[in-house]
Design a protein around this nucleic acid. Structure first.
Lengths: 169, 169
DNA sequence: GATCAAATGTTATGATATAACATATTAATA
DNA sequence: TATTAATATGTTATATCATAACATTTGATC
């Protein structure tokens, strides 16, 4: 029962106080390990995009990423960002948040999972939770009607505890 | 236990054989009734957009709607469609499917509900299911972390039973 | 070091959505 | 019923998000 293990099992990391430097470093290091294991190439632009997303638990739009890439000396045409994001999403290092057309780093890149997101309308942080299993409701309904689920989108928008306590800004 | 009642309780109407003419007519009539009850104005363009969406259970993008509006003699600038859609979505007559940036008519406009969608990647039909309650998984997780949910997006993409049986096209 | 596959560079354009402001219609009420 | 306020529509312009297509470079393998 290492501290690392316990921490990574907690849902909603984004809404908890934590050492984010350590959080980001360990996810980046996990990405390197996974790419090595799987023969994937974490090229400079892909690594940079992941690094940008790991700066915080707030999601970034593709064009925000693009502009930060430009600041770091990368080429800045849209396909540059979208290709890197495609790679990161396909390989489970990043998730796309459909509701806001934006991207966040995955909290648990090792698990195959169907993530659930809580998007705070106030602070814009996005917490990834319940990363373990498919929604039972979805599963049950799908089975009932013979629908074969390939991908799920489960997102809730609302107010996180902190923002609720702080009251309207 | 009227037939109407039983029918409206079935999930995934879109993936079941049914008299769609009757289905559409009854939803349109429900929209008129609800607007009267609530003092809302189902203006010609709003009614036309709802009518277009009620033609089938396949979702339509805003620009597809716009072009059909134009065919019917309505003005065809984007805001025309988006405003009508805003009205219909706000008042629960239409849902937006985030995953595909498109809109479908609501199957149960009378209930306040958190809909769940099954999007068939093959035939493009969208079934609305489990319209009764919030996802318990989402609720439980939200409560655990003190997150106050205002809106949920629950969508599954995959293959409906018909398309699965028919095999790859 | 030739060859193939994967990744990147680049131009152009497609698709989705809204801001902003003018005008017209409707509803409420003086 | 004339006035007014609120709602809805008309219109121009532009913002935002995303990909097609093709050229070039890089890396891996034989």
């Amino acid at each position: 029962m290492s501290p690392r293990k316990a921490e990574s099992d907690l849902p909603a990391q984004a809404f908890r106080q934590h050492d984010h430097g350590e959080c980001a470093r360990s996810l980046m290091s996990a990405a390197h390990d996974l790419c090595t294991e799987r023969g994937l190439r974490l090229t400079p632009v892909r690594e940079k995009v992941l690094e940008l997303l790991l700066k915080s638990h707030a999601p970034l739009g593709a064009y925000a990423i693009l502009s930060e890439l430009a600041d770091s000396g990368f080429r800045a045409q849209p396909p540059v960002a979208y290709r890197a994001l495609d790679f990161l999403v396909e390989n489970g290092f990043v998730h796309r948040i459909e509701k806001i057309n934006a991207f966040v780093a995955c909290n648990q890149p090792r698990d195959g999972h169907s993530p659930v997101f809580m998007i705070c309308s106030d602070c814009q942080q996005v917490a990834e939770t319940s990363a373990k299993t498919q929604s039972p409701t979805l599963d049950r309904t799908a089975r009932k009607i013979g629908f074969d689920i390939q991908h799920t989108v489960v997102e809730a928008q609302g107010l996180c505890a902190q923002c609720r306590e702080r009251g309207p800004q």
